[in-house]
């Protein structure tokens, strides 16, 4: 039942109410009471809701009290100026999380008015609404906040890429499981010879290639940086046995990470929201640089940023192909911000 007690309108002079961080938006709040209302407090705030595959997160900004201890009269029209400031994070529509911003009014009734509204709700069996009649009289209008327009900046400390894939422990475990499986299937100890053969095959198939690759190359150093043309530079420093490396393939991606802690178990979602082009170089030099474009600011992307159980990270992925035909994969996070903007206060 809208407008049964109080009609509220929020109007912005800027039609689509879209703001950059720090930008001020001006508007008007128009109140038309349908009954006499004794108001203890009335005002507005800017509220963010993060919604998705996790508990809702909220953030309040810009809280402004407009009136205190005033009686609003039925039939009158009251007008108040509204001023809001754009903040971070920007409005975002993601895979497992979205950020919505809105201007929301709040009201605290007092005296008879509170009882009047509550009783009216009770009469209509709106029992849960009657617990907080004030809430029933609040209203909202969506606003859109944009990401800042300043260039990206990358922290340029040297990083090393670690080999992804099996750890020695997990390899050992897999090996053991296969071995015992073989013992069961091949009827130990009658077929001991077959089992040993099986173990040797496993060793050649999984374990030796892993250690061979690790010995060839288990880490590559690199430095991430921003170029003068606002591009992303990834400068790899390859080890001296690089002659065994036939090809270097590089890509970066931005990942939306959401931890779902609702309920008695937890689950983490990693969803890439942006993937760069893949660049490659054959027989790379000791120092090999790759230059990438940053994502377009109009696309729905994020810098390295965290709020509660939600975070966004940038990750460099490297595939190295060796002369003998095998390949190793490496991954490392880089921290990307925007100049003159603090996303992680």
């Amino acid at each position: 039942m809208p407008h049964r007690f109080l009609e509220t309108q929020i109007v912005f002079s800027n039609q689509n109410s879209t703001l950059f961080p720090g930008e001020v938006g001006k508007g008007e709040l128009i109140l038309k009471p349908k009954i006499d209302l004794e108001v203890h407090l009335f005002g507005y705030h800017v509220a963010m809701e993060g919604r998705g595959q996790t508990a809702v997160i909220t953030k309040l900004n810009n809280e402004t009290v407009l009136i205190k201890n005033v009686k609003l009269l039925k039939g009158e029209t009251y007008r108040y100026d509204v001023e809001i400031v754009g903040v971070l994070p920007p409005t975002y529509a993601g895979e497992n999380i979205s950020f919505y911003w809105r201007v929301e009014t709040f009201i605290e009734l007092q005296g008879k008015s509170y009882d009047q509204v509550r009783n009216s709700l009770l009469k209509k069996f709106k029992l849960l609404a009657a617990i907080n009649p004030n809430k029933k009289l609040s209203t909202f209008k969506s606003v859109y906040f944009k990401a800042p327009d300043t260039p990206y900046s990358v922290n340029s400390i040297p990083l090393s890429l670690n080999q992804t894939g099996f750890s020695p422990l997990s390899i050992g475990l897999v090996f053991m499981i296969f071995f015992f499986l073989a013992c069961g299937l091949l009827d130990y100890p009658a077929n001991l010879g077959a089992i040993i053969l099986f173990a040797i095959v496993l060793l050649f198939a999984f374990v030796i290639p892993h250690y061979y690759k690790a010995r060839l190359l288990d880490k590559i150093e690199f430095v991430a940086n921003t170029t003068e043309n606002n591009q992303l530079s990834l400068n790899f420093i390859l080890p001296d046995n690089r002659k065994k490396i036939s090809k270097l393939k590089v890509q970066y991606k931005i990942v939306e990470k959401v931890i779902d802690d609702r309920g008695t178990s937890s689950y983490t979602y990693h969803h890439p929201i942006y993937r760069s082009a893949t660049k490659e170089k054959r027989t790379p030099q000791k120092n090999t640089e790759f230059i990438f474009d940053f994502p377009d600011k109009n696309t729905n992307t994020m810098v390295s940023f965290q709020i509660g159980d939600i975070s966004f990270y940038w990750e460099v992925n490297v595939i190295i192909e060796f002369d003998y035909g095998g390949e190793s994969t490496f991954a490392q996070k880089i921290f990307v911000e925007q100049k003159d903007v603090n996303w992680n206060p």
Binding site: R51, G52, T54, T58, Y100, R262
Partner: peptide
């Protein structure tokens, strides 16, 4: 306004 099948606020839970 949002995907109806995600997290909800305590008020919505009611």
């Amino acid at each position: 306004r949002f995907n109806p099948f995600g997290g909800i606020t305590p008020e919505e839970l009611n």
